[in-house]
């Protein structure tokens, strides 16, 4: 048995240094949270993330069952496996939360996002932007003599790739909806 004596004036033994640092690799997970559609429920979910220091990479929310008063919140989050488990457990204990699904571990899932891009340019660049938009099956939803607004639907990776291509061609404004996701099959 060791009696431990802390040196007077030593400050490294703060009460708040107890949390160990987990070296585990961070993972990205897509969660589908079914909640009762009542005032403040989104604030409750977001408050949980900010209050406990979890990440939100993307978040979408809309009512999905008007009769049953249910909304679906799709959250893309990152964290170590332990943190992801905590997030799910913490979401699960919120009173208005009916169900929490981790689409990343529950089998294959479809993830889609809608994005709008304003691309400004003339001459060769304008033609190239239009050509690439065609390859990506993006739609032109607005056009002026020196700009386009493209609408693109696809996986977040596809949207990222399209944004990367548009950047040198005059991309000046982007709007993304965030991820909506459903598991595959029945």
């Amino acid at each position: 048995m060791n009696a431990l004596h802390i040196k007077k004036g030593s400050t490294k033994h703060s009460a708040y240094n107890l949390r160990p640092t987990f070296s585990d690799v961070e993972e990205k997970h897509t969660l589908a949270v079914l909640v009762e559609n009542e005032p403040g429920v989104l604030a409750r979910v977001i408050g949980l993330f900010s209050g406990r220091g979890y990440n939100i990479e993307s978040l979408t929310v809309a009512e999905v069952d008007h009769k049953g008063h249910l909304s679906r919140i799709n959250i893309v989050t990152t964290g170590t496996p332990q943190v992801i488990e905590q997030i799910k457990a913490q979401l699960g204990r919120l009173v208005p939360v009916r169900d929490v699904h981790d689409l990343t571990v529950e089998g294959a899932a479809v993830e889609r996002e809608l994005a709008l891009f304003r691309v400004q340019g003339e001459g060769e660049k304008r033609v190239e932007a239009l050509r690439l938009a065609d390859i990506f099956r993006a739609k032109v939803v607005d056009s002026t003599l020196d700009s386009f607004v493209f609408e693109l639907t696809g996986s977040p990776e596809k949207v990222d790739a399209f944004a990367d291509l548009m950047r040198p061609l005059g991309l000046c404004e982007t709007a993304r909806t965030g991820v909506a996701a459903l598991s595959r099959g029945t």
């Binding site: 060791n2 009696a3 431990l4 802390i6 033994h13 703060s14 240094n17």
Partner: peptide, 17 residues
């Protein structure tokens, strides 16, 4: 003391040493 495990207890003043 904070940051120490259960088996590293302080058991009293200097007199307890």
């Amino acid at each position: 003391p904070s940051g120490e495990p259960h088996n590293k207890m302080l058991l009293g003043d200097d007199k307890a040493e």
